[in-house]
Computed example of a mutant assay.
Amino acid sequence: MRTTITIADEVFAEMERLRERDGLGPSEALNLLARRGMARRATPRVDYVHRSDDVGIRVDVTDIGAVLDLLDDPAADA
């Protein structure tokens, strides 16, 4: 397929680097870069998993206002 596209300067620079290094034509270099980008995107995403550890602190969080007051209390730092 033939079309006209606008290529960002940094993409064009990478295309030229590939062309010089590997002796590729412009279409081959651009296709190689596009395929590399698609391959990266195709890697599975690792979902976030929250990890928690018991540090021995016991705070009743049913009253969030009291928890915030406790955290703001300078005497609690001692």
Rank of each mutant, 00 (worst) to 15 (best):
G56V: 03
T4D: 06
A8Q: 08
A34G: 04
D9V: 04
R35P: 00
H50Y: 07
G37P: 03
E10Q: 10
N31T: 15
P26Y: 14
V61E: 07
R19Y: 00
R36I: 12
G25Y: 01
T3P: 00
E10L: 04
T62M: 01
V46T: 11
E14T: 14
R17L: 07
I5C: 03
A66T: 05
A34W: 05
L32Y: 09
V67K: 05
D47F: 01
A13V: 09
A13H: 08
T3A: 08
E20K: 12
R2L: 09
R45V: 11
D22H: 06
T4I: 06
S52A: 15
R45I: 09
T3K: 08
L18T: 02
E14V: 06
R58V: 14
A29Q: 08
R19Q: 15
E16G: 00
E28Q: 15
A13I: 06
D9H: 04
L30T: 11
R35T: 14
A29I: 06
D22Q: 08
T43I: 10
D60W: 01
A76V: 14
L30E: 11
V61Y: 07
L30F: 15
V11L: 11
H50K: 14
R40T: 09
E20F: 01
D22M: 01
D63E: 10
R35N: 15
D47L: 07
A39E: 15
E10H: 13
V61G: 05
L30D: 10
V46H: 01
N31W: 04
A78C: 04
A75T: 12
R58G: 06
T62K: 05
P44R: 13
